[in-house]
């Protein structure tokens, strides 16, 4: 990915404190437009919190996130248009108690879009579930539900797609389908993606750059090749080797 591209996000002096516990403390991080940035780190390191802030779902305690022309901070919210250009696929796909089709078109309905048929069909085809359009979401397997969640996110053509452990606990076939969809979406539409994962192999397969987060802090960020082949920080080396890091 071309590093000269302008950043989609600029994160500066960002903290998130719950009661007295600081769960996120990022001095500076850029997410370049059109790249896949993998955020890796152990459980509880602040990865999902960072995604919630990037999706403007909760305000930071201090610092700011610049997204395009807009700034998100403790006292500053972003416009609905900016909020609607970012969406998240979470680890646990929570679908509405409706049909697959109704779930996928939900974001389009929120935006008041008509002529949804073609877009819904295209999104379901991308995740290989066109045949299940009329089925009720409750009847899907875990892997199918996650693919519907991905279709529901990509149908709205987000400028930034946030992926929170999107393939955790899925079988290899579903992991393959989802990774392929992510790759295709990124290359065809140039969608900026932030992928949170503790699967370093997945990060290596998909990401243009990788950042390691430990205890809420970014320890190291680098191009994928450099991160895995020549990690600068000893904790990155240990994490890549699969050792426990703190």
């Amino acid at each position: 990915m071309n590093s000269a591209k302008p950043p989609a996000y600029i994160i500066e002096n960002l903290t998130k404190v719950y009661k007295t516990r600081t769960v996120l403390d990022v001095n500076y991080l850029e997410v370049r437009a059109g790249e896949i940035l993998a955020i890796v780190g152990p459980s509880g390191s602040g990865k999902s919190t960072l995604l919630r802030l990037l999706n403007f779902l909760e305000p930071p305690s201090s610092g700011q996130i610049t997204y395009g022309q807009e700034v998100f901070g403790p006292e500053r919210s972003v416009s609905l248009a900016a909020r609607r250009s970012v969406t998240t696929v979470s680890q646990r796909p929570i679908l509405l108690d409706r049909s697959v089709r109704a779930n996928v078109e939900f974001g389009l309905r929120l935006r008041g879009q008509r002529d949804r048929d073609g877009q819904v069909r295209d999104a379901l085809q991308r995740v290989g579930l066109a045949a299940l359009e009329g089925q009720h979401a409750r009847t899907l397997s875990g892997g199918e539900a996650q693919r519907v969640a991905l279709a529901r996110a990509l149908v709205v053509h987000p400028g930034a797609l946030l992926l929170d452990e999107p393939t955790a606990n899925l079988d290899p076939y579903n992991v393959g389908v989802i990774e392929e969809s992510i790759r295709a979406l990124n290359s065809e539409r140039g969608t900026t993606m932030v992928l949170v994962t503790h699967n370093i192999f997945q990060a290596r397969r998909l990401a243009d750059r990788v950042a390691l987060i430990l205890d809420g802090k970014i320890v190291e960020q680098a191009e994928t090749e450099a991160f895995f082949e020549k990690p600068a920080d000893s904790r990155s080396k240990a994490f890549i080797r699969g050792e426990m890091v703190y």
Binding site: L57, T87, L96, L110, V156
Partner: peptide
Amino acid sequence: GLRQQVRSLGAT
């Protein structure tokens, strides 16, 4: 989580 997901999809 559903509320968060719905907001993430752009709901007011």
